[in-house]
């Protein structure tokens, strides 16, 4: 908002004395803040105030009703950082990100590349591939709960034709996290697909044409032309997927509740359990702050290093 201002002010400066220039500059700034005020208020109420309150709560012990009982300083942080459960949650979260982010981006990229062709009826495919976006997490989880049901699972029924014994998708600790990851990849597919497809469609046709004239095959064209040119979209998908993987909650709450053996107990679910089931707001807030720091650092790192590889047109 302030950027376009200097030329205009300079133009005025010729006619108006210095003092009133300063006043008008102030006025303009004030106006800018007036425009910003509503969003600042909204952010303040829903973001900065809760953040401040979390910092405050993280220094206290709360009673079973969530009321402040005792000041404990940094004990909550110390207890969390030395607890096995937190380490487990962190490890589960990392695994979950590794399971969902690369596979999610790769699957969406594959579908986008396939449906980028100009063929008849392609619109139908595009519609189908972006459909998961219209499914809410809750609905999606319930659908997959039935697919993964321990005794009535349709997936197991399908496997039985291949002679593969039934898999306890959600009750076997080895399978629970991959199962949830699979469901999440499917759930996020629609969004990733739309972003990557629009990226592909933004690549100018003349590049493809000259590649064709130079005798480049379709695989080579994809890796040498399409992929570098959609790297901003891929980068965007990467950043957003990592953040959303960190924040995944509903599917875990519905499908496994963090179990079995805490094998799906990601950080956010652990926070929820601590704060809203066991009413330990202190330790819950402390964990939330640690998560906040983690996500912020990771995002900064991504922008610092990841963005260098991104090619903006």
């Amino acid at each position: 908002m302030t950027l376009p201002n200097p030329p205009r002010s300079r133009a005025r400066a010729g006619a108006i004395p210095l003092k009133s220039l300063r006043v008008s500059r102030w006025k303009e700034r004030l106006l800018a803040y007036c425009f910003l005020a509503p969003s600042l208020i909204v952010f303040g109420i829903f973001l900065f105030y809760p953040l401040g309150k979390s910092v405050y709560l993280s220094l206290f012990l709360t009673d079973p009703q969530g009321r402040i009982a005792e000041f404990v300083g940094t004990d909550n942080f110390k207890a969390i950082l030395s607890s096995d459960q937190f380490c487990n949650s962190l490890w589960v979260t990392v695994k979950y990100i590794l399971f969902t982010v690369p596979t999610g981006a790769a699957a969406a990229l594959l579908l986008a590349a396939l449906s980028h062709q100009k063929l008849r009826g392609m619109k139908i495919f595009r519609f189908i591939f972006s459909l998961p976006m219209a499914v809410s997490v809750g609905t999606g989880s319930v659908i997959w709960m039935i697919l993964y049901h321990p005794t009535l699972s349709i997936l197991n029924y399908g496997l039985s034709f291949l002679g593969i014994p039934a898999i306890q998708w959600l009750t076997d600790p080895k399978w629970a996290l991959p199962s949830i990851a699979m469901m999440t990849v499917w759930l996020n597919l629609g969004f990733n697909y739309i972003v990557l497809l629009s990226g592909l469609q933004g690549v100018p046709d003349d590049l493809y044409e000259s590649a064709k004239i130079d005798g480049s095959g379709s695989v080579r064209t994809f890796f040498r032309i399409s992929l570098p040119l959609i790297s901003p979209s891929l980068f965007f998908v990467g950043v957003v997927s990592i953040i959303s993987a960190f924040q995944s909650f509903a599917q875990i709450n519905i499908l496994t509740k963090g179990g079995p053996m805490n094998s799906t107990d990601v950080l956010v679910y652990n926070i929820y359990q601590d704060a809203f089931i066991n009413y330990r707001f202190g330790s819950g807030s402390a964990q939330a702050l640690i998560l906040f720091v983690l996500i912020t650092t990771l995002t900064i790192l991504q922008f610092k290093f990841g963005e260098k590889k991104v090619h903006y047109q």
């Binding site: 049901h149 321990p150 005794t151 306890q168 959600l170 009750t171 509740k257 179990g259 079995p260």
Partner: peptide, 8 residues
Amino acid sequence: NLGRKTDD
């Protein structure tokens, strides 16, 4: 072992 739910 069918998990935690008696429903199942």
